[in-house]
Amino acid sequence: MTTIQRIWRIKNTLLRLLSTRCLDCGFVAYPPKASCPKCGSRRLIKEELPKIGEVLSYTVINVPLRGFEEFTPLIICLIKLGEAKVLAELVDVKPGNVHIGMKVMATLRRSAKTLDGVIPYVVKFRPLSLGSS
């Protein structure tokens, strides 16, 4: 559960999947950082991540945080997107059909209501090939 302010503040990063790339060592970080996590450089540029990637790991959560009950069982994945990794929800797939290495693509979906009662939209992922759902 979040707030309108938070969603508004991070909307660009969250919806466009904006990472930071270090101009000195090349490390790509998502979420974006104020300094490079690898070398400490502040010479960073914002870079949009690819919208198609593959599942590195996943979990199926039966007890999500309060407010997310309607999304249970909640499938959360770590997804490799280009040179970065992203944590996000996976939708349009049965839990039993998720597997490591699965190709997925970003999609815009509704999330749980914020504390202020607003319905936010966030980036989630779905299987690239509908046959695998």
Binding site: I10, P64, L65, G67, F71, L74, I76, L87, A88, E89
Partner: peptide
């Protein structure tokens, strides 16, 4: 970037 998805 994590709790926004309801992950425990």
């Amino acid at each position: 970037y994590e709790l926004i998805y309801g992950v425990s």
